[in-house]
Write a protein that binds this DNA or RNA. Structure first.
Lengths: 155, 155
DNA sequence: TATTGTTATACTCTATAACTATA
DNA sequence: TATAGTTATAGAGTATAACAATA
């Protein structure tokens, strides 16, 4: 970190990039904000050995015991072939279980193991803290407004 | 499209996935909104043979004549090796030119060709329209608020 | 005939190491 | 010594086709 009393390298005029046009676009701003939050998300979830999608899967299974792979795919926008390895890995780690679906012989109902419940609860607590930190420049009211407007875009 | 008068397949209770927890997270909402806008962006930019990054590069070069690859990388969060092919392709299409940098012999200043200026102007017009369409459920005021809050997150 | 879960595979995007030429 | 641009390559993420078992 540079001390305030030290001379700083002043960028020349040609070093300053004018991105004011891109900043008028909702898509550009949504993508940049999204990436900046997800960056923090990935850092803190690495402690649990979870990627962003792993967390989403774990959390959805926690709140929807018996959910199928198909339902996870539809909810998260992941294609079935790309969920197979992910589910298998969580299974191998002893975090989730695949049980035969009660009414559909083709499907498997997903459930958290006790270890999975523990990890998910911890991860969700971390997520709650992280969310505040990653959007620290927002007031609580602004954060609620932001979420409401974002949902209005994609709902 | 199903007519409103036709009987619809009513999903059973087990089909309804509870994602209310994920919806409390700014990151989840930012990512979903971001993807829904970028989806429309990609569709409409395909007409010009441009991907999202191509558009950003073209627009930044338009508003910053003589900008270097390095500056583009820093502004867009793209790694230098991944920009090389992209720039080369735009060059081959006759949309941009690489001229020797006036003060740094290692760098190349990027400039739009007349064809590039034309395409960029059209694409920016399309982007402006698309933005409104992709966020049609927002009022103009809400759209401005959304952009302000998103910038507060990543700035 | 349609759907769930799966395998295999291809394509795109992103990341790392190392080189060259210039600063 | 450090930086701009480049090459080659590896890894992650995302896509389609096709199959077995079940609806």
């Amino acid at each position: 970190m540079a001390s305030a009393s030290l001379p700083t390298i002043t960028p020349t005029a040609t070093d300053v990039v004018d991105n004011s046009y891109l900043r008028t676009l909702v898509g550009y701003n949504a993508r940049r904000a999204s990436l900046s939050i997800i960056e923090v998300f990935m850092e803190r979830m690495a402690v649990y050995g979870l990627k962003v999608v792993d967390f989403s899967v774990l959390s959805l299974v926690a709140h929807n015991p018996g959910i199928t792979s198909r339902q996870l795919c539809a909810t998260l926008g992941v294609l079935p072939p790309n969920l197979v390895g992910l589910i298998a890995a969580l299974d191998r780690r002893g975090l989730i279980e695949r049980r035969p679906h009660p009414s559909d012989g083709r499907a498997m109902g997903l459930h958290l193991t006790p270890a999975g419940e523990d990890l998910c609860a911890q991860a969700e607590q971390t997520a709650a803290t992280l969310e505040i930190d990653a959007t620290a420049r927002l007031t609580a009211t602004e954060r609620k407004t932001l979420i409401r407007l974002l949902q209005k875009v994609y709902d």
